Amino acid sequence: MTTAPPGFELPLRLFLGFRVIVDGLHAELARQGHPDLRPMHGFVLQAIGPEGTTAVELGRRLGVSKQAAGKTVDTLEQLGYVERGSDPRDARRKIVRLTERGADSLARSARIFDELRAGWAETLGEERLRALEADLRAVTPVDLFRLDVPGWFGGY
C-alpha cells in the first residue's frame, strides 16, 4: 500500500501544470511576434473582449481597481494591443478596444493552446488526457472563464 502524497502537493502540481502551459504559450507567442505580452495581459485582453469595455467594467471583471486596470491598459496601449476611444452611445464614456494586434495575439494564443494540449496528449495519451480533463471538470466550477485571477492573486 502506497502512502498518499501530502495534501499541499495537489495544488502545487496543478499550478505547475498551469505554468508549464502558460510559459510554453508565451515562448511561442514571442517567436510569433508578440514578445512583450505577459500572462496577466492575456486575462486583460480576454476581459476586454471583442466589443470593448470601460476601465470600470474591466476592473470589475478582473477583480481589481479601476486604477489598476487603467495602468495595465496604459501598458497594453503603448505596446499596440488596445486603443481607447469614445463610446458611440455616450461620448462621455471611454471604451477600451482591442487593436488588430490585440486580436491577432488572442487568435494565435488559441491555436498555440491547441498545440500545447496536443503535446500533452502525445505524452499522456489522448484517453488519459480526456480523463484528466473530465476529472478536473468534476471538481471545479462550471464557470470556465474566471477572469478575476489577477484580483484573486492580489495582482497589479
Rank of each mutant, 00 (worst) to 15 (best):
P5D: 07
P5S: 13
P6T: 05
F8Y: 15
L10S: 07
L10E: 02
P11E: 07
L12W: 10
L12P: 00
R13H: 02
L14K: 05
F15S: 15
L16E: 06
L16V: 13
R19V: 15
I21V: 14
I21M: 14
V22W: 02
L25A: 00
A30N: 04
P35G: 01
D36Q: 14
D36V: 10
R38F: 07
R38L: 14
R38S: 08
G42W: 06
V44D: 01
V44Y: 06
L45T: 04
Q46E: 09
Q46W: 09
I48T: 10
I48W: 03
E51L: 14
G52H: 08
T53A: 11
L58I: 11
R60F: 02
R61C: 05
L62G: 01
K66A: 12
K66H: 14
Q67N: 07
A68G: 09
A69Q: 00
A69G: 08
A69F: 02
A69P: 03
T72R: 11
D74C: 00
R84A: 00
R84C: 01
R84F: 07
G85S: 02
S86L: 11
A91Q: 09
A91F: 13
A91I: 09
R92Y: 09
R92F: 07
R93D: 02
I95Y: 00
V96K: 01
R97S: 13
R97E: 14
L98V: 06
E100N: 04
E100W: 11
R101W: 07
G102V: 08
A103C: 03
S105Q: 05
L106G: 03
L106I: 03
R108M: 13
R108D: 11
R108W: 08
A110M: 06
R111A: 12
I112E: 02
I112L: 02
F113I: 15
D114W: 03
G119E: 06
W120L: 15
W120V: 13
W120R: 08
A121L: 04
E122S: 07
E126T: 09
E127P: 02
E127Y: 03
R128A: 08
L129Y: 00
L129W: 04
A131E: 15
A131H: 11
L132K: 03
A134K: 12
A134Q: 13
A134G: 10
D135P: 04
L136G: 02
A138G: 03
A138T: 02
P141N: 04
P141T: 11
D143E: 10
F145M: 14
V149D: 04
P150E: 06
P150C: 02
G151K: 04
W152G: 14
F153Q: 08
F153D: 06
G155M: 14
